[in-house]
């Protein structure tokens, strides 16, 4: 019989405590228990990045993290990206540069790009492509995703000056 454990963590600034089977995957807890369905499941094997969330300040693939491993963690999902003043520059960038089509990879792309721009606030095209290599997209050919991330980088850099 599956063992249950209580896990407390913060998601998008909100504290949650859940009782989960030890084998439950973080992506399922987010989607099924917390109803944060922006995070998607694409491949089940940590290749596609659709399930990317930010865990304690690092991008991770939530299909390959156990919820019990997120004890006391800070989690950010796509739902937490927009601030009180509106969309995050990356969200704007994806819209302005047509960085999405079917939208399925988009939440993972955005959350990864959010962390990537903190790791590298002013990346060139090659750096963006390398930094986003853990996220697959089947629709856009990445060309406009690269532009969208540049858009956000420029906007954020301008804002911080």
């Amino acid at each position: 019989m599956s063992e249950q454990q209580t896990v407390g963590f913060t998601v998008n600034g909100e504290r949650h405590t859940v009782s989960v089977p030890t084998r439950e995957l973080l992506v399922h807890t987010l989607r099924e228990r917390l109803h944060l369905t922006g995070t998607h499941i694409g491949c089940d094997s940590s290749h596609c990045g659709a399930c990317t969330v930010d865990l304690n300040g690092r991008s991770v693939k939530s299909c390959t993290v156990l919820t019990v491993q997120a004890q006391n963690a800070e989690v950010l999902t796509v739902e937490g990206l927009a601030g009180p003043d509106g969309l995050h520059p990356l969200q704007e960038g994806f819209r302005e540069e047509h960085g999405l089509q079917c939208g399925f990879c988009t939440p993972g792309m955005l959350v990864r790009a959010y962390r990537f721009l903190q790791e590298n606030p002013d990346p060139d095209e090659d750096q963006i492509r390398t930094g986003m290599a853990g996220n697959l997209c089947r629709c856009t050919g990445y060309q406009n995703i690269v532009k969208a991330i540049r858009y956000a980088a420029e906007k954020q850099t301008a804002g911080s000056v």
Binding site: R31, T37, G38, T77, L81, L87, R95, G103
Partner: peptide
Amino acid sequence: RKRKEDARFIQGKGNYVDD
């Protein structure tokens, strides 16, 4: 023109079958 589909997708508010 920019896409009308995007607002919900970029905010995690898409509604796919598994949702």
